[in-house]
Amino acid sequence: MSVGEPGRAAAAVLELRGRGIVPGVVEAEALVTHDSISGFGGIDVATGTVIEPRHELFGQCFTGRVLVFPGAKGSSGWSGFFQSTRLMGTAPAAMVFNVLTTKAVLGAIVTRVPTVVEVAPDPLEAIRTGDLVRVDGDAGIVTILRRATSATASASA
């Protein structure tokens, strides 16, 4: 993998390969967490915000961003909560996760956003919050198009 020169946005910085499970292609800023996400008691569907106390993303909004996370935890309502974000217009733009569970997989399907799983290299390490990424759910490719500047990273972190 080649790393683009600083300050040059034209070429892709890094391409990560996985398996697309929900089709579609989208480009958006990444929101990355090393904490698993809970649906019930974990997110507020009206605002698209993480509400679990002590969660790394507590108080942050995932709406319109590429949610990069390890996987789902907690209640079986997970898919229903993320489906509700779609119906309420607060859904993330795409999902990238590596821990395959029924909760997260069904959740991605009913949220109907491009989703890539089983991604290498480890997306939690490779992608940073604020990076502009393209998620290609058809080809199973996640591309980092532009690194977050320190300003965008700190604004969204």
Binding site: G77, T102, K103
Partner: peptide, 8 residues
């Protein structure tokens, strides 16, 4: 059983 959801 797996931990199913509303749609499954």
């Amino acid at each position: 059983t797996n931990c199913e959801g509303g749609a499954s």
